[in-house]
């Protein structure tokens, strides 16, 4: 184990000089912080909120008697059950009519996509901003960007060893194949954890900056959510990404190519999406769809969790199963294969 850890340390020495991990990290940071800042902008601007949520921004009511006047109700007022400013000025006979009309809008769900201010505030205040930024990376729908990024990273790191022929140089020096593979796995898990830590730290910085610039008295450091939720989503995300690391490595070992490895592992996303849709058409098979790799991951990392305790255990076991099977298959293929020279991929 000591040798493998030492190997992992030296892998990092090498990998940190590559561009691809930093590019992928930049993408992850951008996406994660985008969530925080869009929440903040939406909190302060109904138009942005509207853009995010859909539906109407405002509805105006006007009257002529006893004196001409008008008021405007926005989704913000509507969702928060708040009467718009000037509501008292509406004549009595029109007021009932107006409330009735509001009930009709509510029934139509015209503001369902519009987030309430409290929900938006939770998106950019600590510690929930951290939870949100990790969640948006791991399970932002419809594209789970976290798994895609980690699979690209896994295929790149291992595939380049085939491409440059360095795998042969490494293994010829007495580094066992198991150790080499295990060191790569550990490195990717570590990089995944490090990336989530950086995302979390940046989320803290973003929240603090918002606190400084916010005109709202509760600012960006208002207490929202629990710190234990941050730890939980962190651990759940790292665990949930394990099968995707294994999938990226497996596809690369199978094809001995970085490019095809990436294509194959990302292509799995498309295949599984189609398969899940087809399975859900059938009532009996719909449950199976929930335990497909990506579907299981999405439900595992969704915040707040939509799973009951038995479903949580089921998904946990499914993720573990995928990880073990993929790692075992990778190790078997890697052990059997002859190691050739550079292929220039």
């Amino acid at each position: 184990m000591y040798h493998t850890l030492r190997l992992t340390k030296w892998e990092w020495f090498k990998v940190r000089r590559l561009r691809i991990p930093w590019i992928l990290l930049a993408i992850a940071l951008l996406v994660s912080q985008l969530g925080i800042w869009v929440n903040y902008l939406a909190f302060n601007n109904d138009d942005v909120n509207m853009l995010m949520g859909g539906g109407f921004v405002s509805y105006s009511v006007s009257w002529e008697e006893p004196t001409p006047g008008s008021i405007e109700i926005t989704c913000s007022d509507f969702v928060n059950d708040r009467m718009p400013p000037g509501f008292d000025q509406i004549p009595e006979d029109r007021r009932a009519e107006f409330l009735k009309e509001m009930d009709a809008w509510r029934a139509d769900g015209v503001c369902d996509g519009f987030a309430d201010r409290e929900q938006l505030r939770r998106g950019f205040t600590l510690p929930n901003s951290i939870t949100q930024s990790i969640a948006i990376i791991s399970s932002f729908r419809p594209i789970a960007i976290g798994p895609i990024l980690i699979m690209i990273l896994a295929a790149s790191i291992l595939g380049s060893e085939y491409g440059w022929g360095t795998l042969r140089t490494v293994l010829a020096g007495g580094i066992g194949r198991w150790k080499f593979l295990f060191a790569k796995l550990l490195l990717l898990i570590r990089m995944c954890s490090d990336a989530l830590i950086v995302i979390s730290l940046l989320a803290v910085v973003s929240s603090l900056v918002i606190a400084l610039i916010s005109s709202d008295e509760n600012g960006g450091i208002a207490d929202s959510g629990k710190w234990s939720e941050v730890v939980l989503i962190f651990l759940k995300t790292v665990y949930g990404l394990l099968p995707f690391i294994a999938l990226g490595i497996f596809a690369t070992v199978l094809t001995t190519s970085r490019g095809i490895g990436i294509a194959l592992s990302v292509g799995y996303f498309i295949v599984e999406s189609i398969l899940a849709t087809l399975l859900r058409l059938n009532d009996t098979l719909a449950d199976v769809a929930d335990y497909l790799l990506i579907q299981a991951f999405l439900s595992w990392t969704t915040v707040p969790s939509e799973l009951d305790s038995s479903e949580t255990v089921g998904v946990f076991v499914a993720i573990l199963g995928y990880s073990v099977i993929l790692v075992a298959a990778t190790a078997w293929v890697f052990k059997q294969r002859d190691i050739g020279g550079a292929i220039g991929d």
Binding site: R17, L18, W164, G165, T166, R168, T169, G341, A342
Partner: peptide, 10 residues
């Protein structure tokens, strides 16, 4: 073996 294979970016 065959030719020296090292990491091109290092």
């Amino acid at each position: 073996v065959e030719y020296p294979s090292f990491y091109p970016y290092l």
